[in-house]
Design a protein around this nucleic acid. Structure first.
Lengths: 113, 113
DNA sequence: CTCATATCTGCAAATATATGCAGATGTAAC
DNA sequence: GTTACATCTGCATATATTTGCAGATATGAG
């Protein structure tokens, strides 16, 4: 039992890290390879400082890796499969979502696969 | 782009729901079939009222289904595969976890499969 | 009807998370 | 060195989540 509790805590921390709309888009954006903070900020339409904070969290948890190149910091997923695992979650969202979402879901599924 | 934002929000809500140690254990406890609140409370070693609150959240999100039987409320997963999907997340936890966790992870993986 | 059991709900306090902004750092070009 | 740019960190505030507890409801037994 105590082991179950411990592992459940670890799992929950991991889920919490993913459970943010910005970070989900960020992870999906990185699925195609490394990218620098400014480009990410533009693509996701977020202030760079905010991106930096999200990246800092993911970095601490070693979900992303940082590589410096000149004055840019290039980030990439340390476990690229995670992007696919997240989109698998779409199936569960779909089941409880109103039919109105079906179109959006299809579109995003293509973009993120 | 707006679609991606929208879907990312939905996904994040779904992840948040799962991102709690009690609820993770609860979902894994339900993987073998329906169960009443009191039994769950004993097995997870949590006060029944707390279980009830978690179940109410999951019920609202239609992640669990409720069936009344006499004075008991029997709950079950509306998408049983979700339990397996969650344990798939263990792989990602494992990668960033200290080696000390390896034993616990193996044990829990067996229990929850 | 009354009682005991099972579960639910509402509320307030504690805690955690997210956000925006201002200033710090680090690097490259001049 | 100075400047411009890219990114990071710290802090205050706003917001959300969790938790415990007290009281409400609902069901079945007697």
């Amino acid at each position: 039992m105590p082991h179950r509790v411990h592992i459940a805590r670890e799992l929950a921390e991991f889920f919490k890290l993913v459970a943010h709309p910005d970070r989900i888009r960020l992870i999906e954006e990185l699925r195609t390879g490394e990218c620098d903070v400014n480009t990410l900020a533009e693509r996701l339409n977020l202030p760079p400082a905010r991106l930096s904070q999200h990246l800092s969290l993911l970095r601490t948890a070693r979900m992303v890796e940082e590589r410096r190149c000149g004055r840019q910091h290039l980030y990439s997923l340390s476990q690229p499969q995670i992007a696919g695992w997240i989109t698998d979650g779409l199936a569960f969202v779909e089941a409880r979502a109103p039919a109105a979402l079906a179109g959006e879901l299809r579109e995003v599924r293509e973009l993120w696969s």
